[in-house]
Design a protein around this nucleic acid. Structure first.
Lengths: 342, 342
DNA sequence: ATCCCCTGTGCAATCGTTTGCACGACAACT
DNA sequence: AGTTGTCGTGCAAACGATTGCACAGGGGAT
């Protein structure tokens, strides 16, 4: 059944040279003559030679493999990031191993260890919601394996990070709502050990202040940002004596929940209540009305993470870990557009 | 920077035994005494020994790595399947390498070759929309690497497949529409070298016949099944002298397009036009009205694909390739529910 | 006592490449 | 003519584990 695979020995035998010469010829070593290289190439193709990555990896120490750890593969944001990572990695000859933590710290740690055993050349990770022991990350760095965090990051010496500017995104979204004439803008925020929600809240607050609008604690609702949480938040907000005329949610799902409640109550969107979400999940475009949202540049984030890794690999000596901050992009749809675009 | 990694030689030195003994002890070889095993275990932990997969792979021929090729990682269906695959694979000690073809046959072939070079223990694939040369798949099988197709399959001797029963799904969906009182049911189908659309069309057609409804060619619209295609199809259908009172689309996206057109024209859903899609993308639940759809059991599909692979690996000798057919599940939402559920 | 088998371990080859070092040949320079 | 340098290739030792075979010692059967 299993075909015999050709090795460099087979090529060497045919051409009556040594395997070393073949190896060097294939890797385009400068000291090998053009004639020999051509001959090796030719017989390699003829024998259908495929390099054995494993053997090469063992000797050289490079596996040309990149490990990725995400909470869930089937969440659009993460799968889009993976998409971006894979594009760049593939073009540079790297394979990508995907693992998922299911937001469990224990599972995350196991994943990292498995990746290290697999001798990956680097690890790109978005950490689990459940906080784990940072020692694991430090061990990765200590082993000399480049480590890149994205979106959900942790401060680790020697690691790089790729983020979006959550503050900016929230600021833009809030400013947009103000410009559309909204005066009482509520905010659905999330509680987490991660900074993303804090930064969004800050952006929201600063935008209000910069436009001389009061910051009102009653207009803030904190939750886990699921659809049901958004509904719950909206219901509470509508009980206020002065209900909001706009809602900026820190996630699209919470915004969807809010939208559903508005529809139930017969409130028109965006006239009575304008809505903006966060993440620009693909589904937001298909809602009725389309949900305005802050795009997280997921694919780009993946590409930057991969690029950072590649840089780290190529200059092992003089690479300094760094943080890349991407500017998010406000996508305006019907849910917040009260005034016609000029 | 890089810490020294412990090898079995280090353990052997400490205990004054040979590396062979250590290797066997770690792999729980029956001929090693319990005492030795315990001692090896202890020092392994003490030295923080982590097996080098690469070295083990080179010698043993097993990489404990599973290759996956999908058209796109960031499509919910595929990322959910990957999710399912990863769950089972991880539990059995396998890592999963993800590659994407972007629906290009050339890229798909390159991916497969890269996976083979990486010496993966098996490949799970959903083929590109663009048809490629089946010889690539045969080469995989010829090399003795288990090959499992899912959803978008190709007939290859020696390969296994995991599918959903598209015929059944379509039949159920159509039957459901009939039971809701629809009489003129249109179908948006896709053109492809793959069988999925053909089977859905067959299911649709047979359901009509079984309920004494005529099959009308004018009610069939063929396209690539994007949102815009669905809109286009719906517009055409509405120009008919006898427009349909229901649409069964072979994909959720086409159904969304149709839904948008209905809304534009002021047609009420489901009263004037009932709608059912296919795939049960998560967003369907959030549409207004919620879109009924046929669930493709994506995670389960992934789990079955992984299971098939694991079976093939474990009984290399007496494994016979087989086809697993999953029964899809019709999810009824507001878009097709004309009669109250009793 | 003799033979056989079982238990626990060691020996050494092997997986397929990579790579530091050495070496012969030939050209160029003093 | 001797020295130095460059070019093209070969030698052999890695990389870290796995594994078939051998073997010593001890117990039981004959």
């Amino acid at each position: 059944m299993a075909e015999q695979k050709a090795t460099i020995y087979d090529i060497a035998r045919v051409l009556d040279v040594t395997p070393s010469t073949v190896s060097r010829a294939l890797r385009n070593h400068p000291r090998i003559s053009a004639r020999t290289k051509a001959a090796v190439q030719a017989t390699a193709e003829q024998l259908n030679y495929q390099q054995n990555h494993i053997a090469a990896a063992l000797r050289s120490g490079h596996t040309f493999t990149l490990g990725v750890v995400v909470p869930y593969t089937n969440r659009n944001f993460f799968s889009s990031v993976i998409n971006g990572i894979e594009q760049l990695a593939f073009n540079s000859g790297y394979s990508v191993i995907i693992t998922q933590s299911n937001d469990s710290a224990e599972r995350e740690q196991k994943n990292i260890e498995a990746l290290l055993r697999a001798q990956v050349d680097g690890i790109i990770i978005s950490v689990a919601r459940e906080a784990g022991d940072p020692a694991v990350y430090q061990r990765v760095v200590a082993q000399g394996v480049p480590l890149v965090f994205f979106d959900r990051v942790v401060e680790v010496a020697g690691a790089s990070t790729v983020l979006i500017d959550d503050y900016q995104g929230a600021y833009q979204a809030t400013k947009h709502l103000i410009e559309q004439g909204c005066q009482r803008i509520a905010h659905l925020t999330g509680a987490s050990h991660l900074n993303i929600y804090k930064n969004r809240l800050r952006g929201y607050r600063d935008a209000l202040e910069d436009h001389q609008l009061p910051y009102t604690a009653a207009l803030i609702h904190t939750s886990k940002q699921k659809v049901a949480d958004g509904s719950e938040g909206m219901r509470q907000l509508l009980t206020l004596s002065q209900p909001p005329d706009a809602v900026f949610a820190a996630s699209d799902y919470a915004a969807i929940g809010a939208m559903q409640v508005c529809k139930e109550r017969g409130l028109s969107i965006p006239q009575d209540v304008a809505l903006v979400g966060f993440a620009n999940e693909p589904l937001t475009a298909y809602l009725d009305p389309g949900l305005s949202s802050v795009d997280q540049m997921s694919e780009q984030m993946g590409r930057f993470a991969a690029k950072t890794f590649l840089e780290a690999i190529e200059n092992t000596t003089d690479f300094t870990p760094h943080t890349t901050v991407l500017t998010p992009d406000l996508i305006v749809r019907a849910s917040s557009q009260r005034k016609r675009a000029t």
